[in-house]
Amino acid sequence: MKLVSGKTVAVIGAGLAGLSAAITLQDAGCDVEVFESSDRVGGRVATDVIDGYQLDRGFQLINARYPELVRLGIVSELDFIVASRTIDISLGTSQVSLGDPRRHPFSALNPATGSILTKVRFLSYLTSHAKAGMSVEEELIKYGNLYARVLKPFLSGVFLTSPANVDAVSGKEIIRSFISGKPGLPAHGVGELAKALAKRVNTIHLNSRIDAIDQVDADSVIVATDVTTAAQLLDIPNVPKLASSTTWYHEIPEGVTSSKNLLIDGQTRGPVINSIAISNMVPSYAPSGRTLLSSTTIDFSSESEVRRHLAIMWGVSSSDWALIAKYEIPKSLPIFGVGAQGAQSSQFAEGVFIAGDYRTAPSQNGALLSGRLAAQELLLN
């Protein structure tokens, strides 16, 4: 990119999109200031510490093979712990496992998660082009038990909505990224990713709320806030539909599980879409000798309903599990419905550009990509 030294740019929002935009602009020689309304960077990509527990604001993994993370070379700066490539499925009173066939070939032989032929056919789905005008569910429902017991509950946790609500084309790209990816977490929480990116940005103003574009003095502005705030700043009448979620953190007794795998319910017997003893995967998430369970719901649910469902999924009583924290996240992810397409241009008006995952893809990679694209388009103007 041609250097444009001397150009001043204000970036509103220090989430992944804003940080990516700022880094791209700085590398091109721009004078960049980032304004963030809260007291921290990262947006939803943040980690709290409560009573010795590390609690991410919503269960989320980092895919170390996301193209934008590879381009930035940021994962090498994190104490990254790779997640298991196997998921456990609760069926009846037992659990079965399904793993990456390259590493766990025998797990694919269990007919409870679909026949071998069905699983082979699913591989052909991954290499084919998605059909426009269809949902993810419409493309996958033909895979029978593999879809009903494994793919649907798993993907509901990925999209934070039913696959019936997600466009087949954009959805398939995300599914492929999971199949070929390298998911995991930094030892000190997902928020370490945002902190590492922020270290590359020269000027970030925290606790700096911007209510109007004319509050900032710059040649150009990139609005990299959540979509609702962007709509308020730019007077945009319609915004994309957003998925909401709630993450529940419980301390569970030692011995309940030694598994590091994500657990889903293959029979949808309650509101929980996934659950994981996250401190088994990353020991620093819980004090020594304790186990932290992270569970996600996408529909309104009481704690008693969540406890009942967790007891079914894990096969043990949950009555004595201590609730450490509950995170309600009303703007978890944008929903790319059937026929939805990413935005073609980041420019909103003369000198004003927009970035955010709702413009590209509902993922960390989508947020980072949108920030870079907005910055590059700004540089060409």
Rank of each mutant, 00 (worst) to 15 (best):
M281W: 11
D226L: 12
A212E: 14
L206K: 01
A194E: 02
D211R: 09
I264M: 03
S258Y: 07
S244I: 05
E192S: 14
V216S: 04
S244P: 07
S180Q: 09
I276A: 03
S170D: 10
E251Y: 02
V272Q: 07
S177W: 00
P240F: 03
I174H: 09
V201W: 04
V227N: 01
L197E: 01
G171I: 12
E173N: 15
N280R: 11
F178P: 00
L234G: 01
Q232D: 14
A187Q: 09
S284K: 13
G171T: 11
T257K: 05
A194D: 06
S245C: 13
P240H: 06
Y249A: 10
G171K: 08
S220E: 12
S208I: 02
E192M: 14
K195R: 13
N274Y: 05
N280W: 10
P283V: 12
N280H: 07
I273L: 09
V239E: 11
V223F: 06
A196H: 00
L206Q: 03
A218V: 11
D217I: 10
T225R: 11
A194N: 08
T225W: 06
I276Y: 01
S275I: 12
S279K: 00
D235K: 08
A224P: 08
R200K: 15
Y249D: 08
E254H: 09
N202H: 11
S258F: 04
S275W: 02
D265M: 00
K199M: 13
G184A: 11
L197T: 03
V190I: 15
V227P: 08
V201P: 02
V272C: 08
E254R: 09
I278Y: 03
D214T: 13
E254G: 14
A187T: 12
P183A: 06
V256R: 01
Q267D: 15
R176Y: 00
E254A: 14
S258Q: 10
S208G: 03
I276S: 02
S245N: 02
R176K: 11
N274H: 13
I264D: 01
V221Q: 00
I204M: 07
G255M: 06
A194R: 03
D265R: 04
L234E: 06
D226R: 01
I222A: 08
T228L: 14
I174F: 07
V221N: 04
Q215N: 15
I213K: 00
L263P: 02
R269Q: 14
A218C: 10
L206D: 00
R200I: 06
N280Y: 07
N274I: 09
